[in-house]
Simulated scan of single mutants.
Amino acid sequence: MTTTAGPGDEQSDPGLSAIMSERRRLINLGYRLLGSLADAEDVVQETYARWYAMSAREQRAIESPGAWLVTVAGRICLNLLGSARARRETYVGDWIPEPLPDPAEWITGGSGVGGIDPAHRVTLDESVTMAFLVVLDSMTPAERVAFVLHDVFRYPFGEVAEIVGRTPAACRQLASSARRRVRTARTPAGPTAGQAAIVSRFRTAWEAKDIDALISLLDPDATATADGGGLAVTHLQPIVGGERIARAYAEIARVAGDRTTFRECTVNGLPGLVAHQDGTIATVFAFEIAGDRIRHIWAVRNPEKIRPWLIQPPTSTG
């Protein structure tokens, strides 16, 4: 990079496009580390603010601007993860990672009211399924950062060490510990088409308030967790047991009546549901399916976490 520039000076700064091209990678990193697109966007903003706070000479002295941006973003995420645990103690109910729609379902365009900037979209793969993100959230901040940077983004431990502030050997141990957590929590999942069929049958049974059909689709030890964040009415404690979940969800359908409709969609890369209430998306449901049974349901009702869904076109997929 040979000159410094602000975000609006791309024509006079041939290096700006290279710097800004890192934005999507930083969003992807931030989301996996924090489980929140809003927080990931804040991290990216802060990262770029620090870049542009440097002088032209300081910028030119950086051999790899992309690596510098990742290092700064990683350190900011590490600090945020450390403070997040304290914030969770005052969070109303359970905290669930922010659910994401399939990128194809997002409106393209600018990052304002008219749509979402493609650079803000998160690449959906196994590392952003809800089940995976929940496991990541159980890790210590250092474990999570070391694991995501090395195992997901393939950064060598020498570079990870610079971000985490530990030796490469210590980072290798952190990633190994995190890997064991992932292996322990992982369940065998069938093909996506098969999972979609189970979610579709669950939707049909739920709309019919068919408790027996719901029970047949749920693992006997299934868990349903909801996140309203104190901003939406929901169960504050997880519901454990297939039969208890079936009866609770049938009661939800009875109370909601005709005001609520369901749409099958993709949530964090896997089949899920969204609930429309009075024409507005009120809840996003993610599922963990093992074999032919639903093992976990995550219901996100916190309106601050479902904002990417609120600007989707109102098309139906099921």
Score class of each variant (00 low, 15 high):
238 P>T: 15
203 R>C: 12
211 I>M: 11
236 L>K: 05
205 A>Y: 00
221 D>A: 15
242 G>M: 14
206 W>A: 05
203 R>L: 11
204 T>H: 03
213 A>R: 03
239 I>V: 15
231 L>W: 10
191 P>V: 10
213 A>I: 07
237 Q>G: 04
204 T>E: 10
220 P>V: 02
226 A>K: 05
223 T>R: 15
239 I>H: 10
237 Q>N: 09
255 V>N: 13
232 A>D: 03
217 L>E: 00
258 D>F: 06
250 A>S: 15
242 G>N: 14
217 L>S: 00
213 A>E: 04
252 I>V: 12
197 A>F: 03
226 A>G: 09
216 S>C: 06
234 T>A: 14
244 R>Y: 09
205 A>M: 02
215 I>M: 02
244 R>M: 08
202 F>K: 01
229 G>M: 12
235 H>A: 14
248 A>K: 00
230 G>I: 08
221 D>M: 11
198 I>R: 03
192 T>Q: 04
258 D>T: 15
247 R>I: 09
226 A>L: 08
225 T>F: 04
211 I>Y: 05
243 E>M: 10
257 G>R: 05
257 G>A: 12
228 G>C: 00
192 T>G: 01
199 V>R: 01
248 A>V: 04
238 P>L: 14
235 H>S: 14
213 A>C: 10
240 V>W: 07
234 T>I: 13
226 A>H: 10
